[in-house]
C-alpha cells in the first residue's frame, strides 16, 4: 500500500470511529453521516458477496452438466419471485421462494433438534454422576439436575400451579434463574467493554492496528468536538431566533 493510501485509510478509520462515538454527546451530523455510510456500505458489501458466491457456484458446479444448467436457471427464476414482495397484486408469487427456503430450513433444523438439543440435554441432566466423584462435584451435579427440573416446571403453563407443592419449586426456580442471569449479565458487560476496548486499541494504534491512527486520533477528536459545540450553538441560536 502506498503511503497516501495508508494515511488516508487511517484518517477515515479514526474519523468514522469518532463520528459514531460523537452520538454519545447527542445525535449530530457526524453520527448521522456515519450511520448512513454504514448502512450503504454494508448493503453493497453484502450483495457483492452474494453475487460472488453465485458466480462461483455457477462456474464450479451448475454449469458443468446440462441438468445443472436447467436447475440453476430454474433457481434464478424462482429467485426473481422474491421481488414480488413489493407488489400487492403478485405478492402470492413471493410466497413460493419463501416457502422453499422456510421449508428446507425447517426440515434441516427439525430433523436433529430432537436429538441435539432435547434428548442429549435431557440425558445429560438425568445421567448425573454421583458415585466415583468427589462430594462437591456430586453435590453440584445433583443441584444442577434439580435446578433444570425446577426451571422447566416453572415454565409449565399447561398445568394450573395452585397446589402448595408448586410454591417452593417456583421460588427455587426463580432464584436459580436470577443467579444464572446474573452470570449472563457479567458476561454481557465483558463483551460490551471488550468491543469498546478493541476500538480504543484501534484509536491508539496498538499493533496490529496502524500506528498512524494514534497521530490522527487527538486531531480528529478535537475537530469533532469543536464542530459539535459549534453545531450546538448554531441549533440553539436558530431556536432562540424562532421564538
Amino acid at each position: 500500500m502506498s503511503d497516501f493510501t495508508t494515511y488516508f485509510g487511517a484518517f477515515l478509520g479514526v474519523l468514522f470511529t469518532l463520528a459514531v462515538y460523537s452520538f454519545l454527546y447527542r445525535e449530530n451530523p457526524w453520527s448521522r453521516l456515519a450511520e448512513h455510510m454504514f448502512i450503504g456500505s454494508a448493503i453493497g458489501y453484502g450483495i457483492a458477496y452474494d453475487l460472488d458466491w453465485m458466480r462461483s457456484q455457477w462456474e464450479g458446479r451448475w454449469s458443468l452438466t446440462s441438468t445443472g444448467v436447467t436447475a440453476f436457471a430454474f433457481a434464478l427464476l424462482l429467485g426473481l419471485l422474491w421481488y414480488f414482495r413489493f407488489s400487492r397484486k403478485y405478492f402470492w408469487l413471493y410466497r413460493i421462494p419463501l416457502a422453499i427456503i422456510t421449508g428446507t430450513g425447517l426440515g434441516l433444523a427439525f430433523r436433529t433438534v430432537v436429538f441435539a438439543q432435547l434428548l442429549t440435554q435431557v440425558k445429560a441432566t438425568a445421567g448425573i454422576q454421583l458415585v466415583g466423584v468427589d462430594a462437591w462435584t456430586a453435590f453440584n451435579n445433583l443441584l444442577s439436575a434439580v435446578m433444570v427440573v425446577c426451571v422447566l416446571l416453572y415454565f409449565t403453563f399447561t398445568v394450573r400451579q395452585t397446589h402448595p407443592v408448586w410454591k417452593p419449586i417456583n421460588v427455587f426456580a426463580r432464584y436459580t434463574m436470577m443467579a444464572g442471569f446474573g452470570a449472563a449479565y457479567g458476561y454481557t458487560i465483558l463483551t460490551r467493554m471488550s468491543l469498546y476496548i478493541g476500538r480504543c486499541q484501534f484509536l491508539l494504534g496498538v499493533p496490529p492496528y496502524a500506528p498512524e491512527n494514534k497521530t490522527f486520533f487527538p486531531w480528529i477528536a478535537l475537530l469533532i468536538l469543536v464542530t459539535l459545540i459549534g453545531y450546538d450553538l448554531y441549533v440553539k441560536s436558530r431556536a432562540s431566533a424562532k421564538t
Binding site: F16, T17, V20, Y21, M37, F38, L195, R199
Partner: peptide, 13 residues
C-alpha cells in the same frame, strides 16, 4: 477503512 471501523464501533457504543 469505512465498513470495518463503522461496523465495529456501532456495536461497541
Amino acid at each position: 477503512n469505512v465498513l470495518t471501523p463503522l461496523s465495529s464501533t456501532m456495536y461497541s457504543i
